[in-house]
Design a protein around this nucleic acid. Structure first.
Lengths: 195, 195
DNA sequence: GCAGAACTCCACCACGTGGTGGAACTTGAA
DNA sequence: TTCAAGTTCCACCACGTGGTGGAGTTCTGC
């Protein structure tokens, strides 16, 4: 069922992982296909055989990154607790893979430029997460009437996402100063009116 | 008193401005000295004559950026209102110069990598702003006893700075969706126990 | 075991990279 | 007006860039 041969798939995978590290360190523009290929132990033309061009490789890296954050199976009922736990788990896992966080931080910042090749992809990604959080906030507010937040669910969700990413960048620049997972967890439970 | 001739100083300035735009678009590694020099209307060896190497140019760009955010003169008494207004004014000015915001966002994200040439500079910059906010929070809490924040002034300040930067990145990726200056202002007034 | 698809590497291309050296020109204070 | 200091560009260097074409090898379904 999967495309290609097993050897090829393994090579692709190791290239993606090398690329993730390289983009995280040097950004999309600063990382070179040759250095990525060298790290993966293949010729750079092998890399191009598998991915066609540099932009396609970048998108493959993002896709791979996201696939790591998805839960294997969904529970029967989706509620705010479950979503909050899911995001908190992601935050905790991120803390253990600083390279991947660095990758997304740099790419997201770079993608603020209008002609960045991953801009659309990252916008969609962002939009999805924000929408999920906004939906959760909305349903939670409907159940708990007495909240005192003067931001709309969408705005609050955007602020949560932005703060989360900002905290990760802050943490990379000042390692060990903050307990990012705890702060994210607190922020989510606050936005979701939990406890 | 100033070093060099007037012509040289003018050239340096236009190089710095071109470099700021280029680093914002492509990051430190992705922007080339030749493209920066071309944009400034000089040969790339002229650029190197003035700045010596690429890293020195980057540091000059950051220094120039920061000099734009400094108030010309300090008031007689510094209080929380004044500081909050200062940051709010910066946030509002940032909204009108997206290129510079983009610059610092990309550089800050890149500087999460330990060997980035501007890492130390940006750490110090960050530390200064965070310390000022933390000091303000501390003095304000001493005056208004009944606050309900369970974060220390330092942690709260770090969260404020991180959220601020995250909001700017978010805004660059989703232009016009958020009123960033208003959100920053609200965040500061909240942290400073104002109103 | 065979055929054909998939894979991998080598050689090459045109061009861009940061940086150097030096020669010609411009500036501004004495 | 003089002249050293400052400024600018041109030519060059060794090397890195993303990408192409093709030849040789390895894998897998039949």
């Amino acid at each position: 069922m999967p495309e290609g041969y097993a050897t090829g798939r393994a090579t692709k995978q190791s290239i993606v992982e090398s690329a993730a590290a390289a983009f995280a360190q040097k950004g999309f523009y600063g990382a070179s296909l040759r250095s990525i290929a060298r790290e993966a132990g293949v010729d750079h033309s092998t890399l191009l055989h598998h991915f066609g061009n540099k932009t396609a490789l970048l998108l493959a890296v993002i896709e791979w990154h996201d696939s790591r954050s998805m839960p294997e199976e969904l529970p029967e009922t989706i509620d705010a607790e479950y979503i909050a736990d899911g995001f908190a788990a992601t935050a905790a896992r991120n803390a253990e893979t600083p390279g991947l966080v660095q990758l997304l931080s740099v790419l997201t910042a770079e993608a603020g430029a209008e002609n960045h090749p991953a801009r659309e992809t990252l916008q969609r990604r962002h939009g999805l997460v924000t929408a999920l959080i906004a939906w959760t906030i909305r349903t939670q507010r409907a159940e708990h009437e007495g909240h005192d937040d003067d931001l709309s669910p969408e705005d609050r969700a955007a602020v949560v996402v932005a703060s989360w990413e900002g905290l990760q960048v802050y943490d990379a620049l000042h390692p060990g100063q903050l307990d990012v997972p705890a702060l994210v967890r607190a922020m989510l439970r606050d936005a979701f009116l939990l406890d």
